[in-house]
Amino acid sequence: MFSSHDGLCTIGELAERAGVSVKAVRFYSDRGLLPEASRSTGGHRRYGPDAVERLNLIRSLRGLDLPVSEVRRILDEQDAGDTADALEAAVEGRLSTLGSELRALRWREAALQLVLDCPPDERPDRLRLVGAVSAPPSTAALVRFWRGWLPARMPARSVGAFLEVAVPQPPESPRPSQVLAFALLYAFVTRPCTGSGPCQPSAHEAAGARESAVLYAGLATAYDLAGGEMRRGREPRPGEALNGFVDAYASTYGTRDTPGFRRQLGGRLAADPRIDRYWELTAQVLGAPGDAPEPTPGTAHDWLLEALGADLSTGAGPGESGRRVLRRR
């Protein structure tokens, strides 16, 4: 309670009691956050006894860097007798914003260290490379790349499932080497496609949505099996993973898995465009120091191509197509 006869105080008394400047009190009053109880005969602002507590709450909320609009919403709900929903939403929103800002700062820090650590004559090119990537980086360019690479009629659910494993999420606390790998990956997917046709493997072209779904569902299973073989350190070889890989293509083309089909498939895959560089950079973006690279769809695909080549060269028929697959790596 203020000492005046009517229990009210002036703007100066309120500022002194709350430990803020008169300018701050006037700012909050002008924006409707701190209502006046009345005005004196001389037109001076007068505040009630609850103004100190309200002003302290405003300062606390602003101290968390909440915008004035959020502070107003919280105060309005408090006036209505409920602060939980607005306060929780405001804090969650601020936490999300701060998280994004911190990720951006960590990314910029690693990018600056990357530029600083390279030889002076390489710094301009390195700076242009990493400067083309936003902080924190967006994966939108990688998604666009794959949407151009995948079959046009592939079902949205199948596309989404593939993108989840094919598009690496940038680390929240990257090392300079991961910043470089992601920047190189961004440059790789944003460069123009070569040739007159679409940037899409001819072996992946399908007649319709159903065939596309069959192909990529089968490939996903084969890649998973091949990834298990790779984690165990096994060399490419015929087996369940390769059988599933070949069967995915055979089912799409409406044929059977035969030695002749394997030879045809081996030659066709060898002639298709390759994006090994994409998968190499993806592994670098995701990798931790000293860890063996985690299998990706690309490295699993390479393993299966080598397995197909080994199968063709050891008795499935003429082995030249298998050797072509190996040589193209």
Results as ranks from 00 to 15, higher is better:
residue 71 V to G: 00
residue 109 E to I: 08
residue 99 G to F: 00
residue 118 C to L: 12
residue 116 L to Y: 09
residue 123 R to P: 02
residue 98 L to I: 13
residue 136 P to N: 12
residue 83 T to K: 03
residue 112 L to I: 07
residue 140 A to L: 12
residue 88 E to Q: 12
residue 113 Q to V: 04
residue 117 D to E: 08
residue 113 Q to D: 12
residue 124 P to L: 10
residue 85 D to A: 15
residue 73 R to F: 03
residue 71 V to I: 14
residue 69 S to A: 11
residue 132 A to T: 05
residue 132 A to R: 14
residue 67 P to D: 13
residue 113 Q to T: 04
residue 100 S to T: 11
residue 60 S to R: 09
residue 81 G to M: 12
residue 62 R to C: 02
residue 139 T to M: 06
residue 119 P to F: 13
residue 138 S to T: 12
residue 113 Q to S: 12
residue 118 C to A: 11
residue 105 L to S: 02
residue 124 P to N: 12
residue 62 R to Y: 01
residue 120 P to M: 05
residue 93 G to S: 09
residue 91 V to C: 05
residue 97 T to F: 02
residue 120 P to Q: 08
residue 90 A to V: 02
residue 91 V to W: 05
residue 73 R to V: 06
residue 121 D to C: 11
residue 68 V to P: 09
residue 139 T to P: 09
residue 115 V to M: 03
residue 92 E to G: 04
residue 119 P to M: 02
residue 128 R to G: 08
residue 140 A to R: 14
residue 100 S to D: 15
residue 132 A to H: 01
residue 87 L to I: 06
residue 115 V to E: 10
residue 141 A to C: 09
residue 66 L to K: 12
residue 103 R to G: 03
residue 116 L to G: 01
residue 118 C to K: 14
residue 119 P to Q: 08
residue 99 G to E: 09
residue 91 V to Q: 04
residue 119 P to S: 08
residue 112 L to K: 03
residue 90 A to P: 01
residue 63 G to W: 07
residue 137 P to F: 11
residue 108 R to A: 09
residue 65 D to Y: 05
residue 87 L to A: 12
residue 91 V to T: 08
residue 65 D to W: 01
residue 92 E to M: 03
residue 118 C to D: 05
residue 133 V to D: 02
residue 101 E to Y: 03
residue 108 R to H: 01
residue 120 P to T: 11
residue 89 A to V: 07
residue 114 L to G: 01
residue 94 R to P: 00
residue 65 D to S: 14
residue 75 L to R: 10
residue 140 A to P: 04
residue 135 A to T: 15
residue 72 R to Q: 11
residue 73 R to C: 09
residue 83 T to F: 07
residue 122 E to G: 03
residue 102 L to T: 09
residue 64 L to W: 07
residue 71 V to Y: 07
residue 105 L to K: 06
residue 89 A to S: 10
residue 128 R to F: 13
residue 128 R to Y: 05
residue 139 T to Y: 08
residue 77 E to Q: 13
residue 121 D to N: 06
residue 95 L to S: 08
residue 80 A to E: 07
residue 75 L to Q: 14
residue 113 Q to W: 06
residue 71 V to P: 10
residue 123 R to K: 04
residue 91 V to D: 05
residue 130 V to G: 00
residue 81 G to A: 01
residue 116 L to P: 00
residue 112 L to S: 05
residue 120 P to N: 02
residue 119 P to K: 11
residue 75 L to K: 00
residue 120 P to C: 02
residue 100 S to G: 13
residue 135 A to D: 10
residue 84 A to V: 15
residue 126 R to V: 15
residue 86 A to W: 06
residue 80 A to P: 00
residue 116 L to D: 03
residue 127 L to V: 08
residue 61 L to P: 04
residue 131 G to F: 07
residue 89 A to C: 05
residue 115 V to C: 10
